[in-house]
């Protein structure tokens, strides 16, 4: 069995951080990569990935499987992923609750789907194929939403609960996405966390977002992974850790204008610290009760 992700902070791997990661002691204890960046046959990308996979537990976080595509998952893509999983034996493999391709066209974005029975059956079927091929369960990430569908039959939390129950998959829970989607589509994030079966959460993502205005002057939050994690998201993260009773493996995502390693290390340190604070708060509350 491959090693598990540690219950501490990790960051998305960027080649420019390679030397810092390998040479210095830091708050970063695991790394995540997008397998799509390693689908070439050889060269420097594979050399780098080999070096970090020998030094850190690794999570492979796909952005191209398109679990929500009505025309199914792409066999060629699944084979490429299987080859990478086989070669690097990551501790975790994850994907998104989203779709990206239609009729042989890949749109390179994580597009939303309605929470209906039809969607649930389809994602369960696509996910089943992926898990069967990889011979392991994977984690599915909640999306950041900019649109609301007419005719949803489930809340997102109910949909994820059902999906985990049907397929045995776990959750990669993105707290920033929760915050962004709650604002953009008008639901209550705390209520969502009450509805969600948080026992399914095996990994957490944190990232920054930017703020735009809609024509009616209400805010639209953009999940752009281009800034530090915001205070409101840290608060939600702390209440999640409090309820979980342990720190989940927690990833800092910063993909646009990624800063130098020092700042990534600071953000990772903050995650470790906020989680520790939430847990000590829980112990104090429980002993006071």
């Amino acid at each position: 069995m491959t090693i598990e992700l540690p219950n501490s902070a990790g960051i998305g791997f960027k080649p420019k951080h390679l030397a810092d990661l390998l040479l210095q002691k830091s708050e970063v204890s695991w790394l995540e990569v997008h397998p799509e960046n390693y689908m070439g046959d050889g060269g420097l990308p594979h050399q780098d990935l080999l070096a970090v996979s020998e030094a850190f537990p690794l999570s492979m976080h796909g952005v191209g499987m398109s679990l929500g595509s009505a025309d199914g998952v792409n066999d060629e893509h699944l084979e490429r992923l299987a080859k990478l999983v086989d070669a690097y034996q990551p501790a975790r493999v994850s994907e998104h609750l989203a779709w990206s391709h239609w009729n042989q066209v890949f749109l390179n974005d994580l597009l939303p789907m309605p929470y209906t029975r039809e969607s649930l059956n389809l994602v369960a079927e696509n996910l089943g194929r992926v898990q069967d091929r990889l011979k392991r369960t994977i984690l599915v990430e909640n999306p950041s939403l900019y649109l609301s569908f007419r005719g949803d039959e489930f809340s997102e939390a109910e949909f994820l609960n059902e999906l985990c129950k049907t397929t045995g998959c776990g959750l990669l829970f993105d707290v920033n996405n929760l915050y962004v989607s709650a604002n953009n589509t008008g639901f209550d994030a705390q209520q969502y966390l009450k509805e969600l079966n948080i026992k399914n959460i095996a990994e957490v993502h944190l990232a920054g977002h930017s703020i735009e205005s809609l024509p009616n002057e209400s805010k639209l939050l953009i999940d752009d992974h281009g800034s530090p994690v915001r205070q409101e998201v840290w608060s939600l993260y702390q209440s999640l850790v409090f309820n979980l009773g342990e720190m989940p493996p927690t990833l800092i995502e910063w993909d646009t204008d990624t800063p130098d390693f020092e700042q990534m290390d600071l953000e990772a340190g903050l995650a470790n610290q906020y989680a520790a604070n939430a847990l000590s708060n829980k112990i104090l509350k429980e002993s006071a009760a």
Binding site: N37, N74, H77, F106
Partner: peptide
């Protein structure tokens, strides 16, 4: 020529 594959290397 929209991409046919998620692997941007192609």
């Amino acid at each position: 020529n929209p991409p046919a594959s998620a692997a941007m290397v192609f």
